[in-house]
Computed example of a mutant assay.
Amino acid sequence: MIPTATVTSPNNSLFSRLRFVLVETSRAGNVGSVARAMKTMGFKELVLVAPKCADPLNDPEAVAFASGAIDVLQNARIVPDIKDALDGCNFAAAVSARLREFSPPVWTPRAFSSHAASQQSLVPAVVFGNERVGLPNHIVEACNVLINIPANPDYSSLNLSQAAQVLAYEARMAALGDGIDAGSVGFHGDAASVSQIDGMYAHLEQALVAIGFLNADNPKKLMPRLKRLFARTGLETEEVNILRGIARAIMSSTANNTPPRKD
């Protein structure tokens, strides 16, 4: 069993702690594909145990399949055995579609990733076997857990790089936690302050009263419902200014008895 004693890491981010280990890989192209899968998710430490393909770090197929992840590929280490591959690690997970009678506890990729991300003292490794025969029993039994990727039971075979991509993705999501969402893409302005939003509500209420949409003597629940609507949007300062500009144009047009401008 891989020891679980604390190992000092210069950076507690899972991106720097997680190691990908490929055991006796046959195709150089698969080594390159795994390097690409790792880099797309932000990981960089790749170790090859006794690869069966010649010169896997410079093989033309490996380079082609790595695409833009040449740095991950060419910085990979080649070692003779699993002991050297896991040197410095204190938690190892064997990845296999085949369950063993005497295997360590079986985890999903998500469970492993969550554990690895939350336990900052861990220097974890995910270990992948040969494309055709997978991992030998003695390596699986030496690991802390066995990762089984939930897949179609009628066809659960994943390519080596596909399995690595699943693990890298789950590890990335666990590492980022609440730091990733759909709002992380695209332009973002400054969030509007409470006072700015309150001012907008007051301005909007005046405009609605001015056009007769809101009865000031009997407002019912219109404004609370509008506030709830806008609260779900995460208003930015510029958006508040736009809404106040609309309210200002409405009030100006009603004061002048002219239709509001549409531009």
Rank of each mutant, 00 (worst) to 15 (best):
101 E>Q: 14
263 D>F: 08
36 R>C: 00
53 C>I: 06
235 L>K: 00
227 K>G: 05
20 F>C: 01
165 Q>F: 09
20 F>Q: 04
67 S>I: 10
163 A>G: 03
30 N>W: 01
247 A>L: 04
30 N>T: 05
11 N>L: 04
42 G>A: 07
253 S>I: 05
55 D>F: 03
50 A>W: 03
51 P>Q: 12
215 N>K: 12
159 N>L: 10
213 F>H: 12
251 M>S: 01
251 M>W: 02
82 I>A: 05
88 G>P: 07
108 T>H: 08
259 P>T: 10
88 G>I: 07
90 N>G: 05
201 Y>W: 13
123 V>Q: 13
124 P>I: 04
263 D>W: 03
182 A>D: 11
230 F>K: 05
72 V>W: 06
107 W>E: 11
91 F>L: 08
259 P>A: 09
21 V>L: 06
217 D>T: 12
194 V>I: 15
193 S>H: 03
113 S>A: 15
97 A>F: 02
29 G>W: 06
16 S>C: 04
83 K>C: 14
191 A>M: 03
101 E>R: 13
9 S>M: 06
89 C>R: 01
227 K>E: 07
32 G>S: 05
251 M>P: 01
223 M>T: 04
160 L>K: 00
176 L>T: 00
113 S>V: 12
243 L>A: 07
136 P>N: 12
34 V>S: 01
14 L>T: 09
17 R>D: 06
32 G>D: 02
70 I>M: 12
18 L>D: 06
122 L>W: 04
6 T>N: 13
3 P>S: 15
190 D>L: 14
172 R>K: 13
164 A>H: 06
258 T>P: 02
27 R>Y: 13
175 A>V: 00
59 D>S: 07
89 C>V: 07
93 A>T: 09
174 A>S: 10
20 F>H: 00
228 R>S: 15
197 I>D: 07
159 N>T: 11
128 F>Y: 08
11 N>P: 09
170 E>K: 11
212 G>A: 08
196 Q>T: 03
78 I>M: 11
100 R>W: 00
241 N>K: 14
119 Q>H: 15
46 L>H: 02
91 F>A: 07
153 P>Q: 13
11 N>G: 04
154 D>Q: 14
117 A>N: 07
143 C>S: 08
249 A>M: 14
221 K>D: 15
159 N>I: 09
51 P>S: 12
167 L>A: 10
195 S>V: 15
128 F>D: 08
192 A>T: 05
53 C>K: 02
156 S>E: 12
28 A>T: 09
214 L>F: 03
10 P>C: 02
199 G>K: 04
176 L>R: 02
226 L>K: 03
51 P>F: 01
204 L>F: 00
238 E>N: 15
243 L>W: 02
55 D>R: 05
49 V>E: 05
185 V>M: 10
71 D>Q: 10
10 P>R: 04
233 T>A: 15
167 L>G: 11
65 F>Y: 09
160 L>W: 06
255 A>R: 14
167 L>Y: 10
20 F>I: 07
163 A>N: 05
229 L>Y: 06
97 A>G: 11
159 N>Y: 04
154 D>P: 09
233 T>F: 14
48 L>S: 00
115 H>W: 03
162 Q>E: 14
218 N>Y: 12
